[in-house]
Design a protein around this nucleic acid. Sequence first.
DNA 1: ACGCTCACG
DNA 2: GACGTACGTGAGCGTA
Length: 959
Amino acid sequence: MGWHYAFGRASLQSNSVWGSLQMDTKFGKGCHLHLIDGSAFIFRAYHALPPLTRKSDGLPVGAVSGFCNMLQRYVEGNNGADAATHVAVIFDKGSHTFRNDLYDLYKANREAMPEDLRPQIPLTRKATEAFNIACKELEGFEADDIIATLSCMAREAGGRVTIVSSDKDLMQLVGDGVEMLDPMKNKRIDRDGVIEKFGVGPERVVDVQALAGDSVDNVPGAPGIGIKTAALLINEYGDLESLLDRAGEIKQPKRRETLIEKRAQIEMSKRLVQLDCDMDLDFTLEDLEVRDPEPDVLLGFLSEMEFRTITQRIAAKLGTEPPVIAEPAAEAAADEVEAVPFDADKYECVSDASALQVWIDRIVQAGYVAVDTETTSLDEMRADIVGISLCVEPGQACYIPIAHKASRGDDLFGSDDLAEGQMDRDEVLGMLRPLLEDPSVLKIGQNMKYDAKIFALLGVDVAPIDDTMLMSYAMHGGLHNHGMDGLSERYLSHKPIEIKSLLGTGKAAVTFDRVPVDDAVKYAAEDADITLRLWQAFKPKLHRVGVTTVYETLERPLVPVLARMEMAGIKVDRDTLSRMSNAFAQKMAGLEAEIHELAGRSFNVGSPKQLGEIMFDEMGLTLPDGKKPSTGKTGAYSTGADVLEDLATIHDLPRRILDWRQLSKLKSTYTDALQEHINPDTGRVHTSYSIAGANTGRLASTDPNLQNIPVRSEEGRRIREAFVADDGKVLVSLDYSQIELRILAHVAGIPALKQAFVDGVDIHAMTASEMFDVPLDEMTPEVRRQAKAINFGVIYGISGFGLARNLRIPRDQAQGFIDRYFERFPGIRAYMDDTVAFAKEHGYVQTLFGRKIHTPEINSKGPTAGFAKRAAINAPIQGTAADVIRRAMTRMDTAIERIPARMLLQVHDELLFEVDAEAADDLIEVARNVMEGAADPAVKLDVHLAVDGGQGATWAEAH
DNA sequence: ACGCTCACG
DNA sequence: GACGTACGTGAGCGTA
């Protein structure tokens, strides 16, 4: 039973003049054109299959394999009366289309393409060609437009068309001999099918889409109108134009208002969804005629991809012998990888161009490389590069010294001359640049943000990347830290050379350029070696743990975004800080004198120990509740703000201390320390964000911390006046309003809470009203304050004790509040119980986006159990909010590119931008849209995410 | 090195 | 019945 390739066979059967058709027949009556939506095939293949890699070299090929299977299945099914005489697979090309010019947020919600899919795209083109099927695309156009143009052409020529796709946008093309075929359900969709889906005929589908919008592609449409309503309106008024012209006649007030007010937006939506039937194509329908595949070409491609099963199947059907696919010694090699011992003596020192070229060739061959840079400072903005290490295979790594100083035995401080045997920096960079920027070579690093910044400042844009620190964070969040040394010991059982042993510690520490080259080779090359080994261990584990999407959408894409933000920095006015510092110093001196006077003697006001002894032992102050003053671990009296606040009711001293402490904090941490952080070259402050620091997925800001600049007190808020926009620009601040409570409303499913956000009422007042049966218009600030504390308490894993302390009320009263709250919102209790139960069973909790936060102490006994429980309750909420803003940030750069604007800072629920003054309003609109839509399309929140915005010359004004 | 205190969300 | 407690961070200072 010989197998004929379905196209050939079908054509021969259904059309006896197959041969002549192939020669010169014009496309026309009797012809049947199949148009396959290639991108849809690819994505379906990608998501349907596990992440397979080519055995010989690890190239990701899962999607290609699925794509080939789908093509083969399609081809086999293509026979009988409906068989195609002409066929093409159509692809999208380029991310920017005319629709982006119409509306810059078009498809802005789209997830970035997964890293392991990107290299497979060109391979799917090759696969199509290997099947000998026409493969068409056009820069700047979506596949849908090409499909539209071709079906119009085919229809006009009198032929039939089948569009193989399930994309509902293509339904507008159906009719007059054009049908769709959903390849998964194997269901044909004709005119009736379209009416079933859209409620209108194909010719009016665009009108319905224009009204209903599309959250996936970010087509706005008319708010509040879905497909059902849209179809109703179109059927009543005939078409969109008539509807909009006669919108005033609509009875429902809300609907009428929307259609009148949003007319422009609706008309733009129509232009976005309207397919272009009139493109200029550089090929004809005749070019799409079906052709039998060349067995050699097809089998050659399949065997090159190392698809054993498909190759054999197709070879059998073609009646040929399948080509032999070499079985690499993969298993044996993999075991050996584990066994390769660390040997610092095997690392190579690269000191000339020919040696470097050998490494570059190896890396290009491999398609990946572990990279590490050595510099003179942990602050990238002040660091000079000293050397680069590379590794492509465990145990085989090199170090390229660039700027090591010559060391001389008789000179304690070393010399300023460069050591011998080093390549010129620019020569090294010139050779490495093509590699580091090569889209087909993956650069692997541990904390790549650091190295990417070092390279970026030297004019090299490193991409694409993988980051072992972030892989670990995605897999092991909550279990341990993700520093390289720890990971190496834990996962490779190897203790790396400590940097201390090369640089020394404390005052005597030297910079890396003072390290002798021989020592540097051992240390630096080992780091690259470790990084590569960690990557090999983590890459497959990422899938097993089920956090590939988390890593690819929430962690890795943040690296270039944060690198840009950190390099941009924010302008800080030194004079403002300096003036404030002097003012604080004066006030503090005055307070200090008063404090000593009140205390009866002089002491260090900054010492809690001395203060405690003075207040409680010498002066004999007693707490209002009559309790003994509490002590900490060291036995010293506790003198925290809450204690002093209580004591302030009986004596003047504690208030003075509180005032002094506030000023001291502002002066030392902000007005003084911040000045030290102004970069002399840029005049700006460049913080560093740690992506893998906080357990919940939040970022953390260090050196300096710009996420805790004062704002709550009037005095402190003035610090923000020193954060200014550059000349001619303004700062724009956008922050999520009550994002954690909104997420709580969603995850716990609290109808009253959700409704409150829909109605836009004061959420704390609403809570108070529900709990205390007080009507909203009779709400007092005090009752509202208590409800607010409870709302926050819930997010933190409330306890009677904690609430009592926070509100300074008796514990039983606080417990009463909590009981009442749970009575009114029983879903909250259920959420808390379920979350803790989940944590106990699985050892982790999860955010809505799949981030896992491990809770290793959840099953412990004693007080730690309480901590672990509350942390488990809080983590999904805080973590989901963190995921949301991460998603917003990864999409923000491209969204605001054209304005142009720069994102400078992230403060958990706030993003701060710098933009030309006249473009500020534009930015606010665009950035707000990105932020409000950041959960889409991965998660459909029941609650709208609202974003407040402001602008001004300083951060104080913008916030 | 560690604890205390306090700045932020 | 008693533990002990709001969640998540980072920095500066004093004390050991």
